[in-house]
């Protein structure tokens, strides 16, 4: 039976945190020996969440002559997929006690297919972007995503939070009511922008993809790392540290930027022959490939979850800080969802 990845987190009474990760099957091994084009056909069928991100990373890594149209299509699909993943996390994970917010799921679930159908037709692509912006305004922000991005400080952020309710605002207010803004705050190190050559060297090291470290340390990747300079996120980091509220708002900022990125073509995909890098909803995804005579000789995939759920990484550090918190199991659940692993997880509190 194919093992799906799964993370189990044990919280002991004395505050220790132990993370056990069963990553499931190693897809990279399935690609070795294949023609690169065949690998590009297989990848979307293997991954349910970030299939397009995997294809985009693989294309940069294995295809020598990526056309502008292909690069543009990858960018558009990855952005739609990232928006869907952020929205799925909000739809399924941001539970508000005693309030019945119903976010319609069909526009979210159809987002990637709609973009797929629109790719190559600028007017239709703009339409998908406009529909996403409208959905975000109605159901997530209560104002346009562009207006949300213009909030400049904590006073403006608090005003926004106090305005008419949406699921996102109600969830953030619930975090405030619990006094959980700084929950799991850690001194985190964001993964810097590594060059293609640096990544290739790292990916060639044995077990790097299972336990990635940079300068001997695990690093954080994802929305907080990407958006830490947004004025509201920076102010929350200053006030509450890299805890629950900073993480949740960084995800909202990341999401709010997507409709504009869809029209400007600002791409989350980069790399060079041999290594493809994509910024996904959960952080940086890397594919590294070596070819010989038109066949893949070597293939490695590094998922962002490996950085964030490293045995000494940001998730474990954040959870270790919950020792004395009332409602520790619920807090742990909220924190893990905020850091957002790409596999199922289970929290066991002693």
């Amino acid at each position: 039976m194919i093992a799906e990845g799964r993370i189990v987190i044990d919280l002991s009474r004395n505050g220790d945190v132990r993370l056990t990760s069963n990553r499931g099957a190693d897809v990279a091994r399935l690609l070795v020996g294949r023609d690169p084009r065949e690998a590009l056909d297989l990848l979307p069928r293997l991954f349910s969440l970030c299939g397009h991100a995997h294809v985009a990373a693989a294309r940069v890594a294995v295809q020598e002559d990526v056309t502008e149209a292909e690069a543009h299509a990858d960018t558009s699909r990855v952005l739609a997929e990232t928006a869907r993943e952020h929205l799925l996390r909000i739809l399924t994970g941001w539970r508000v006690e005693g309030a019945g917010f119903e976010l319609p799921s069909p526009p979210v679930m159809g987002l990637v297919k709609n973009m797929q159908a629109a790719v190559g037709d600028p007017a239709e692509e703009r339409q998908v972007s406009a529909l996403l912006a409208g959905y975000l305004e109605t159901h997530v922000f209560g104002i346009s995503p562009a207006a949300f991005l213009k909030l400049r400080d904590l006073a403006e952020f608090t005003n926004w939070l106090d305005g008419g309710p949406t699921l996102a605002k109600a969830y953030l207010c619930q975090i405030v009511a619990h006094g959980w803004q700084g929950l799991g705050a850690v001194s985190t190190q964001f993964l810097p922008a590594l060059s293609g050559a640096q990544l290739q060297a790292l990916m060639a090291e044995p077990s790097f993809t299972l336990r990635p470290e940079w300068h001997g340390q695990p690093h954080e990747t994802g929305p907080l790392a990407r958006q830490s300079r947004h004025p509201v996120v920076a102010a929350l980091l200053e006030l509450h540290g890299a805890g629950l509220m900073s993480r949740l708002v960084a995800r909202l900022v990341d999401l709010a930027k997507i409709p504009t990125q869809m029209t400007t073509g600002e791409s989350p995909v980069r790399g060079q022959p041999g290594v493809g890098v994509v910024e996904t909803a959960r952080g940086r995804l890397v594919h590294a490939a070596r070819q010989e005579h038109g066949q893949l000789k070597d293939y490695q995939i590094l998922a962002p979850t490996e950085w964030n759920f490293h045995p000494e990484g940001v998730a474990v550090q954040a959870l270790a800080g919950l020792h004395a918190v009332t409602g520790r199991a619920e807090g742990a659940q909220a924190l893990i969802e905020a850091i957002d692993p790409c596999v199922a997880f289970e929290v066991r509190a002693a």
Partner: peptide, 8 residues
């Protein structure tokens, strides 16, 4: 990484 496992 999350595999796309089909279920009936």
């Amino acid at each position: 990484m999350c595999l796309a496992i089909p279920a009936e």
